[in-house]
Simulated scan of single mutants.
Amino acid sequence: MQPEHANIAGNVHGGEIMKMMDNASGIAAMRHCRSSVVTARVDSLEFHLPIHIGNYVKCICQVTFVGISSIEVLATVMVEDLRFDEPPKVALTGYFTFVALDKNGKPVAVPPLKLVNEEEEKLFEEGKQRYLARKSTRENVGEDYCPPEDNKII
Rank of each mutant, 00 (worst) to 15 (best):
E72A: 14
P112S: 07
T39K: 04
I68P: 00
A109Q: 13
L82D: 01
S136R: 08
R41S: 14
E86P: 00
V116Q: 10
G14H: 05
H48R: 12
A28N: 02
T64G: 01
P147F: 06
L45Y: 06
R83C: 10
V73P: 03
P112H: 04
R138L: 14
Q62P: 00
S70N: 03
P111G: 03
V77D: 00
V12D: 03
A100T: 08
E16T: 14
G94F: 03
A75N: 01
L82C: 07
A6F: 08
E46Y: 08
E118I: 12
T76R: 11
I154F: 15
V66C: 08
P107R: 01
Y131T: 09
R34L: 12
C146A: 11
F98Y: 12
C33K: 09
A100E: 07
H52C: 13
M78E: 10
C33P: 07
E121K: 15
P107C: 03
V90L: 11
I53P: 07
Y56F: 13
Q129S: 10
Q62H: 05
P87K: 13
S69Y: 06
V108I: 15
H52P: 02
H5R: 08
T93F: 03
R130K: 15
N140A: 13
N104K: 13
G10V: 11
I153R: 08
A24G: 01
A29E: 11
A9G: 04
A133Q: 15
G127V: 10
V110D: 04
F96T: 11
F124N: 03
P88Q: 02
E143N: 10
P147N: 10
F47Q: 08
M1D: 09
H13P: 03
H48L: 14
E143A: 09
V38D: 01
V99I: 12
A28R: 04
K128R: 15
L92M: 09
N117Y: 06
S35I: 09
I27M: 12
M1V: 11
K152N: 09
E86N: 07
D144R: 06
L115W: 06
S69K: 04
I60R: 08
V38C: 05
V38S: 04
R130A: 04
K135P: 01
A133W: 08
Y56Q: 13
R31Q: 10
N151F: 15
